[in-house]
Structure formats: C-alpha cells, structure tokens
Design a protein around this nucleic acid. Structure first.
Lengths: 343, 343
DNA sequence: TTGAAAGCGCTAACAG
DNA sequence: CTGTTAGCGCTTTCAA
C-alpha cells in the first residue's frame, strides 16, 4: 500500500470534516439538492474530489429500502441463446441506473432455487428468471417473495410475475410444416429437459401439427436429453440405432442440432439428402454449421429488453399481469431439403 | 397482494417480538452462535420459519464492511470465449458464498471505466477484469480503489492487481510455425482492437516468429478490426482486395475467423486449398465451422477458476503479486493444410 | 442556509 | 444464557 492507495473508503463524515461542514450539507451537495450556499457547495465539492469520495450505494439503499440491483437468473451463459437476452436486459437496466446480479444455474433446479433465495437475501429490487426449470408451485413461492419478477420463456400467475415469451407452439408448427412441405414423413425428435416449459410448448405444437398432417409419431421416435451439443450427440446415436429409417430430426435447440450434425457427419449420413435436421433458437452460429441450420428465430435481444422494461414497470407497481408473446420466424437453410411442390 | 404475499420484509426485530426475546438472541440463532439455551433456540427457530425471515445481507455487510459480492467485468458475453470464464469464476465464487455482479462493457472503454466505478459504489469485495481495454494508467487508478483485483489476459502492477493470462506470444508462434510447416508463406493478418493487450502480445509473437522464418509481413497485409464475425467479414474483403495472392489468414480470434470463412465461401475461395485460415481461442463452435477451424486452445474455464481463486486469496491479503501464465495448445483442424515435410 | 437527531437491519462488545 | 448500547454510512425530519 503506498501513498496513492485509495482503498480505505472515504465517508461522508470524512468529507464533512475536511470541508468544515456537517454531513447533511455534504449529502445535499452529493445529491444535488437545494439548500446549500454557492460558496459552501464549492468548498464541499473541493473536499469530495480531494478525498476521492464516492457515495456508498449499499448504505443509501439500506435506508431507502432499495438496492438498485436486479437479479438475473440464467440456465447457462455458455449456451449462446442466453447472452443475447442478458445484453438486452442489461442495456435497459444500466440506462435506468441498475446493476445486474447474474447467476448461472447450469440447468440445475436446486441451484435455481438457491439463486432466487440468494437474490432475496441481497434485497434485489426485482428478478428476471430465464427459462426456469423449477415446478410452477416452487417457482411461484420463491418469486412471490420478491418485490417484482418477470419470467422469460414461460407463463406465470400475473400477480406473481410478468412474462415475456416466444410463441413456441407456432414456432414448432412452422418447422413441421416446412419439413412436411419438403417431403419428410418419418420424424425423430430430440426433446429437451422434461421440466422445460418451452420444451412442452414445442411438443404441443409438434403433436398438433403432425396430427393435422396425419403423421405418425411413435414414442420410440422421441428421446429426451440435456440441451447441449453432447446431449444432441448422445440422442442422435440412440435415435438412429432404434430407428434407422428416419428422414428428419427435430432438435430441441440449435446446440442439440449441432450435436446431431456432428454425429451424422461421423456416421457418414448426408444432411439433408438422407436426413433433414432442424434446430430452434437461431443462435449466431447456426448459419455457420455444416450444413447451415434451418431453425426458428426470435429476437432474444428484444426478449431481454422487454423483460427488463416490464420488470421496471412492475417495480413501480404499474403494468401488472402483462404477458408479452413474441412471434418467431422460420429461417430456412441448407440442413433441410429444398421445397418441393408436393405439399 | 394476498395473504400469502411475503414481499414485506421481515426483520430481526419482528422475529424477536414474535419469539419474545431480544434481537441479539435472534441474531445468535441465525448465525448459529453459542450462548442461547436449547429451548429459546427452538422458539426462535419457530418464529423464523413462521415469519419466513431471511437475513438482510446488505445490512450485515454495512456493519462488516463487506458485501459478499464480486464484480466481474467482461468485454462481451456474446463472444463465446467469455461465458466459460464466467462459469469458472462463478463456480468458485458461489462455493465461497459470493455472488457475481456481472457487467458487459461491449468493448467500450468508457463503459469499462463506468463499470469499475459502479462496482466501487456498491462496495464489492473484489473485482475481476477480463481483457480490459483501458490504458494501463487509467486501469491502475481505477483498480487501486478496490480492495482486491485480478486482471485476466493482461499483466498489471502486482500491488494493484494479480493477473491470470495465457501466453499469447507462444500461442501465436505455434500458429505461425504450423502455417509455415504446411507451406504458407504470404500471411494476411486480421488484428484485433488496438488497445487489446492480448492482441499486442499476439502481434509480438507473430513478428518474432515470422522474422525467424524469414517471412515478409508488409503493412498492407495487416488490418485491424472489431473482434466480431462482422469485423472478420469486413477485414477479409479489405485484405483480399489489397492482396489477392495471400495463402493464409491469421485471425485475431475465432469469431473473426468465422467471418473470414463466411466471406471466403461467398467469394468461392477454397479453404485451405487456396488460402488457409487460423483463429484463436478455440470457442466451442470452432470445431463445427466449415471447414473446422485450426486454432489455439487454452482452458478458459480454468482461467476463470484461477482468477477467482487468486482474487479470494488477495481479498484475504495473501498471494500478492502472483501472475499465473497458462500455456495454450495448438488445435489442428481442416482449415489449414495437412502437414508437408517441407518444413 | 445549515445542522442535530433518529433510524434503516444488523452485529461486536460489553453488561447483567 | 440473555440483553443493552453503540455504530456501520447514509438520508429523512425537524429545529435553529
């Protein structure tokens, strides 16, 4: 520690002493409040910069019952789908003077619950839970303890949390329609985690759309796995062993699809000639896969922005019960066959 | 708000009242401290769960001069290189009872400075700055105001911050050696942001290694760009226009290399036959590019773990002046030619 | 225009 | 074993 060390924190009292005034006067100057003479104000300003004073937001928050902090819960930042949401949410938060407390819960339900409680202990002003895996009951109890909450990619009781989500049923229906239109009939499905709300929505769309097309979808064509590249690799091996004649693979997300593509390439199975592959999310790399991936896109940056905006509104007691649903869009690339007129 | 609403925060005093004891007794029970009779302890426990009390960590921190919070500064979570570091750091932090305050500074120097000040205002117990772009002088001033700090991917004055970094000079040398060994002679370089420490280290390795091989590297073969896919696309177009005869492209990172690959594919230039491409970082998707990317790998998860471990040590006043240097490893894939015996 | 007192929720340091 | 006092850094309230 040398003379330039500024680690010992300067307090209002230190500044007050240096400027020869009371702490209240300093507080007024710091907060740009009236009731301080021009000359005093100057003197205090001088002391503040001389001492390198910075207000302690934590102490301020203790009094004001706010932390200017927002808890953001994310399944896994390592999945490129989520960082975009984080950025969208963060940009809005920072613009409003809030800082983000980020927690990765690595697809673990208990870690998710623990994170929500940790947020509470830190008295965050609000929480955004992305794709939570907790059961609706537990999640509601945990979220109800927070001042304000918003859930991303899932619905909730409106007085507990707002929600911003993507119409996954429609997204999945678009995917299936596209596959059918390009001549696929024997679909294999790699479903995501069983507690995934988005996953269930997608399965709903899948069931309905396949039924409308009179397609058969036996249980052995469906495998549930972790929503990762490795999960996709495992699931693809399982599916192909069980059903060598599949002509399309519907993957829970782009990561899973990536695993599928890798496994198919290793096995020497041509995509999309032998088998078509579709993903979900349109992560930034989807266009660079081999072959580029047909998938479903929704603006995740916007998702994050909406979520944070809604949260800020709820924190002020406005906008209760809002449920924003964004429509996703089909992105056709080379992992599916060219459109025939058959459909 | 209904009867189950738990948003109104319960305090120690509330619990004390309910249990008919003093706040100190409750505090002792909450913190599992001795000096409370078994029956009293039970009664207090009952009151705690009846009221759903959770200690306010912020208030506790005000007294103890600690926030149990660590500030993590990241250039851009959207770059797959960083989430792994975040995970490594977070896993260690959580294991020690700390929560992460994460800030993306989107490669913006001013946002970086603002984030470091925001961390200070929140009295974080320590800071980790990943790949900071601030000048050494400004960074040192800002970091010196923190209790403890660690810089990732860059060096610093040991009393200001510890450092954990990758030996980028060696990494780049390995890359160049590999290119030379596979017959490349006319290298084009897409450098990163000019204030990037890692970038300068890599350029150093590049200069030295090319010189040792007697290779010429004129200025017009080097272009600086944003370290993103888009930056890579722009830079590649510029380079190829200026120098149509390049036989290798050395990219600042894998994102840039991705942009290069996309641009080359569009232009109908074959990789690696016409031109070889190398990246840096080995992000998880590098193996899935078209063609799979030759690049440099270092365990970023370990980088994050080391950084946090070092920070925790420094927070306790131990381990001053440590500088951990991790050796990176060459990963050869199909974006470079097969090894000839020419070298 | 300025300041003194009280208190946010909690705990360390002493009483009893 | 249990409680009282004081104070962390700040702001709100009221008085001078």
């Amino acid at each position: 520690m040398n003379a330039f060390d500024t680690r010992e924190k300067v307090t209002l009292a230190d500044v007050a002493l240096q400027a020869g005034v009371s702490v209240m006067t300093v507080s007024r100057v710091v907060n740009d409040r009236p009731g301080v003479g021009a000359s005093t104000r100057e003197r205090v300003r001088g002391a503040i910069s001389a001492l390198g004073y910075r207000p302690n937001i934590v102490a301020r928050g203790l009094k004001a019952h706010r932390s200017c902090t927002i808890g953001l819960l994310v399944p896994d930042v390592t999945n490129p789908y989520f960082p975009e949401i984080v950025r969208g949410a963060e940009d809005v938060a920072i613009a409003h003077g809030f800082t983000l407390l980020l927690t990765n819960v690595i697809e673990d339900v208990e870690r998710e619950a623990a994170a929500l409680e940790a947020f509470e202990d830190r008295r965050v002003d609000g929480v955004i839970a992305c794709s939570p895996r907790l059961s609706a009951e537990r999640l509601d109890v945990l979220l109800a303890r927070h001042h304000a909450a918003v859930i991303v990619n899932r619905r909730s009781a409106p007085d507990v949390a707002g929600s911003v989500r993507i119409d996954h049923e429609q997204g999945m229906r678009q995917l299936i329609r596209h596959l059918v239109a390009t001549g696929c009939r024997r679909l294999g499905v790699i479903a995501g985690p069983s507690h995934s709300y988005a996953g269930r929505e997608r399965m709903l769309g899948l069931d309905r759309e396949t039924r409308e097309h009179g397609l058969d979808l036996p249980d052995r064509h469906v495998v549930a796995e972790a929503p990762t590249v490795e999960g996709g690799e495992r699931a693809t091996r399982t599916l192909l062993t069980r059903n060598p004649s599949l002509d399309a693979l519907v993957c829970f997300n782009d990561l899973v699809a990536a695993g599928a593509l890798l496994t198919l390439a290793e096995a020497g199975i041509a995509v999309p000639t032998d088998i078509a592959v579709v993903g979900y999310d349109d992560i930034p790399f989807a266009r660079m896969f081999t072959p580029p991936l047909t998938t479903i896109r929704a603006s995740t940056y916007a998702l994050g922005q909406h979520a944070m905006t809604m949260l800020l509104e709820r924190m002020e007691g406005r906008g209760r019960g809002v449920d924003i649903v964004l429509q996703p869009e089909l992105v056709v690339r080379a992992s599916t066959r060219a459109c025939t007129d058959a459909a």
